[in-house]
């Protein structure tokens, strides 16, 4: 019994080490041509102004800026636009779709490439203010039904 346990533990540790080694080897591997092509990120070119921070800073730290701003806005009511998600979307949304998601969406392409899930847009809209307002009639229709007095229980 005891022996079995020991073997089990030793085996588990060995497997872990092997995995760790593999990961390390992978990290130091010389650069092979990437299997997944680097996405062509289309920044809104027609917007003349620059991003709120230099590109390399944004690449590395955009999530920190957004998260910091999120807490400031949510809890303190600070509504500066410089690092707000809304501001990101306003500038970077695809002029055609009005969205930062989708096949060529500014946020989606890069996050897909980097295999990092974004949680922002399960709650936040991925569209610019203008696009959202354009959707008004549809949302209104649903609302009228919503505000109608409830007839009976759950469908």
């Amino acid at each position: 019994m005891k022996r079995n346990m020991k073997q089990f533990v030793v085996g588990g540790l060995a497997a872990l080490l092997a995995l760790g080694g593999l990961a390390a080897a992978h990290a130091t591997e010389p650069k092979k041509p990437a299997r997944v092509p680097v996405p062509a990120i289309s920044v809104n070119k027609d917007k003349a102004e620059k991003c709120v921070e230099p590109t390399d800073v944004m690449r590395r730290d955009h999530m920190k800026f957004i998260q910091h701003q999120r807490d400031e806005t949510m809890h303190k009511g600070i509504r500066t636009s410089k690092h707000s998600l809304k501001n990101c979307v306003e500038c970077h949304a695809d002029p055609k779709t009005g969205s930062v998601l989708g096949k060529d969406g500014f946020c989606a392409t890069c996050h897909q490439y980097a295999a990092v899930t974004i949680d922002c847009f399960s709650c936040h809209t991925d569209k610019t203010e203008k696009r959202v307002s354009a959707n008004e009639p549809a949302s209104l229709e649903r609302l009228v039904r919503l505000s109608a007095p409830a007839a009976g229980a759950k469908p």
Binding site: S147, A150, A153
Partner: peptide, 12 residues
Amino acid sequence: IESSFFDGQVAA
């Protein structure tokens, strides 16, 4: 006596 949000009723 009336509510769209089931106030005052036993919930199903």
